[in-house]
């Protein structure tokens, strides 16, 4: 990261949802998350289901209002702005969703879908339509198909439409929440390449939220690994992938299947016990997974961690640099040597 002010700055962000039933404990979906995204860079936010990565994305584009902490965009705290005050900012902050078909209105033509953010911002209709045609071309679709409906497009094409809509207002930051995971394997690479090309051409910054560590490795400059609402490790992609310092990152990376049987046979796996549970039942016994609702004291990974010791039960590890001045930070009492 440069010393210049980052485009996006997230500090100690928290989001607590009330429990589903009256007696249930509130769920701390995001529990003190801090990171920056510089202009033009890609930060990958990875983690398993329920870790709070999507909630974090929604807080940043302010589809949700955080319980505590701050989201600073371009030097301005936007964490509690009203919808009206947010409207001009929405030009800059856009989002791409996981399932292209359910995020496009089936009753609107593609022209209308892509032009919609422009119309909201007050662009005249004719001008918005021209821009929609340009955007179709930009994302590799035929502008002649502007008057078609979403169901007439395949999954990969529909995701291109979703991307075109996100780019309509010329944003500087795009939050992409699992943008390729609903696509067929043979189509994922097309969309990944498209997003990379657009980033270079338009100077976009991405917050790329995904559970697929192979895709994240391809597209990101830096990664942040989340576990039960917190970032457990973050740093430049090369460092985190080559020598993960947190036991959770190590387990996660070692669990990803590699499409090569020879490599698979030679790999060593780092196992965790159990799994992260989203149920609000309190953990009943040892080896039982934690949950965002009832966080055990100390480290959230402790019940599953092969390295856990006494201190992990009592003290919550703080995210700190692996060595003074290092870009890499880890929240663990016993990190691997980098």
């Amino acid at each position: 990261m440069t010393s210049a002010e980052p485009l996006l700055s997230v500090r100690d962000l928290r989001m607590t949802f009330p429990g589903r039933r009256r007696a249930a404990a509130p769920v701390r979906a995001v529990d003190g998350v801090t990171f920056d995204v510089a202009a033009g860079e890609t930060l990958g936010l990875v983690g398993e289901s329920g870790c709070g990565k999507s909630t974090t994305g929604r807080l940043i584009v302010r589809l949700l209002e955080p319980t505590a902490g701050s989201v600073t965009y371009d030097g301005r705290d936007i964490s509690h702005l009203s919808q009206r005050a947010l409207k001009p900012l929405r030009k800059d902050l856009q989002m791409v969703f996981q399932d292209p078909h359910s995020s496009l209105n089936p009753r609107q033509t593609v022209a209308r879908i892509i032009a919609d953010p422009l119309l909201v911002q007050g662009t005249p209709a004719a001008q918005a339509r021209t821009r929609a045609a340009e955007l179709m071309e930009l994302v590799g679709l035929t502008p002649e198909h502007l008057d078609r409906y979403p169901h007439e497009f395949s999954g990969g094409q529909a995701q291109r439409i979703g991307i075109a809509r996100a780019l309509a207002t010329g944003p500087r930051l795009v939050v992409a929440d699992e943008p390729v995971s609903a696509l067929d394997v043979s189509v994922q690479a097309q969309v990944v390449n498209l997003m990379e090309r657009l980033q270079h051409e338009l100077g976009l910054a991405y917050l790329f939220i995904a559970h697929d560590l192979s895709v994240v490795k391809r597209v990101c400059d830096r990664v942040a690994v989340m576990y039960l609402g917190r970032i457990v490790e973050t740093g430049p992609k090369e460092q985190v992938y080559a020598a993960p310092a947190h036991p959770y990152t190590r387990a996660l990376l070692s669990a990803v299947p590699v499409p090569d049987p020879a490599v698979e046979r030679a790999r060593e796996r780092v196992s965790l016990l159990g799994e992260p549970s989203q149920s609000s039942r309190p953990p009943a016994r040892r080896g039982d997974p934690g949950s965002p609702a009832v966080r055990p004291p100390g480290c959230a990974l402790r019940p599953r961690c092969p390295k856990a010791q006494g201190i992990c039960r009592t003290d919550t590890p703080v995210l700190r640099a692996v060595e003074p001045g290092a870009a890499r930070q880890v929240a663990c009492h016993f990190p691997e040597a980098a």
């Binding site: 394997v185 043979s186 192979s214 590699v258 499409p259 490599v263």
Partner: peptide, 10 residues
């Protein structure tokens, strides 16, 4: 083509 198109961890 499928194998070539996959992003790989290694």
């Amino acid at each position: 083509a499928l194998l070539d198109s996959l992003p790989r961890l290694d």
